[in-house]
Amino acid sequence: MDTEAPHTQRGHSSPVEGDERPRFAFSRSGRTVGGRPLTWRRAGVLGVVCTVFLLLFSNFVVQPFLIPSRSMEPTLQVGDRVLVNKLAYRFGEQPRRGDVVVFDGTGSFVRERPDGNPVAAVLHGAASALGLAEPSDTDFVKRVVGVGGDDVVCCDAAGRVAVNGVPLEEPYLQPGDAPSAVPFRIVVP
């Protein structure tokens, strides 16, 4: 005598017995968000929320940069995009020789910020924060040659940069390029 009830299969979308509620809500277009029809207002709010999230993320965590010049060739080409880890040096880690870094050159490479239309500056800043436009004129992508306390001299008799009296081998330079057109000696602060 067989006392077991026959096994019936039901799909994931099959309602539980006595549960007549629909599992999914569909709009005329068939698009839903969280079970509710997608409206223009919801789409706009979702777009604004996503944009704000991306701007905050790129401002504090990882920011894309577009390479605008040939100064880092052959390592980086014009038009390359790089992702900059903005958390790399926030928790005690220090830049090391050979690291490629992005920094604001105001006060060193650029004497003062250029004046301009503030609205255009905000829009350009947002576009460059998302990697859609060239970085601002004060952002620079460079390789670290010396760190705090290093004595950096350019150039020795062979045309090389020396750090603490030791000439650098710089295989990343284009053949025939000099590390600097201007002789200098500086102790890195």
Score class of each variant (00 low, 15 high):
Val188Pro: 06
Val188Gln: 08
Asn117Pro: 01
Leu130Gln: 04
Arg81His: 15
Thr32Tyr: 03
Gln77Lys: 13
Ser14Leu: 13
Thr138Asn: 13
Asp151Leu: 13
Arg90Ile: 02
Asp19Cys: 12
Thr3His: 10
Ala25Cys: 07
Glu17Met: 12
Thr75Gly: 02
Ser128Asp: 01
Arg185Cys: 06
Gly125Gln: 06
Thr3Trp: 10
Ala127Phe: 10
Leu54Val: 11
Ser136Thr: 13
Asp80Phe: 02
His124Cys: 01
Val61Asn: 06
Val82Arg: 04
Gly116Val: 07
Cys50Ser: 14
Leu173Gln: 09
Thr39Val: 01
Gly92Glu: 08
Tyr89Asn: 05
Val122Ala: 15
Pro175Tyr: 02
Ile186Cys: 04
Glu112Ile: 04
Asp80Ile: 01
Val49Thr: 13
Pro179Gly: 09
Gly149Pro: 00
Phe26Asp: 00
Ala25His: 04
Thr8Gly: 12
Val187Gly: 08
Arg31Met: 05
Phe53Trp: 14
Asp19Trp: 06
Leu168Thr: 06
Glu17Trp: 15
Pro135Asn: 10
Val182His: 15
Arg111Glu: 15
Arg81Val: 11
Ser29Met: 00
Val187Leu: 04
Pro22Val: 02
Val100Lys: 03
Leu123Ile: 11
Ala127Cys: 10
Val152Asn: 05
Gly159Pro: 01
Ala5Phe: 13
His12Asn: 11
Leu132Cys: 09
Gln77Arg: 14
Leu173Glu: 08
Phe57Trp: 11
Thr8Val: 14
Pro189Tyr: 08
Pro95Phe: 00
Pro179Asp: 09
Glu73Gly: 00
